[in-house]
Amino acid sequence: MTRTLNLGDSLPEVHVEATPTFVISSAIATRDFQDVHHDRDLAVARGSKDIFVNILTTTGLVQRYVTDWAGPEALVRAVDIRLGAPCYAHDTLKFFGQVVERFDDGVYVVEVVGRTPQGDHVVGTVRIEVPA
């Protein structure tokens, strides 16, 4: 069932465990073969503390967080994200969200924050359309 959305609704907090397997499998599934997403030695040599999640995965996680909550009939129209602290392997990425705008044509804007121990990894908005 698709959920009824109201302005101000909070999304339940969701935790994503960014295990090394997660970081690597999602990088490969998004066809991002940059070494910092799968080779820890090279990532460290380049100044990172570990391998880290790639952007296409972050975009996917933000989309998933909203549609898991809104239901399969919600249509995703836009995902706008601003990137902050890296999400390293072994981090827990915690997602928070809230419905912040509503338009008459059934379009809603959900604000999403993805936080790691280093700080905000991603802050963004997802625009979804919910059929009446």
Partner: peptide, 15 residues
């Protein structure tokens, strides 16, 4: 490729 992606991202949306 979609299946690889939904598996990795953990997206359960059935559409």
């Amino acid at each position: 490729m979609v299946l690889n992606w939904v598996e990795a991202i953990g997206d359960a949306n059935p559409v």
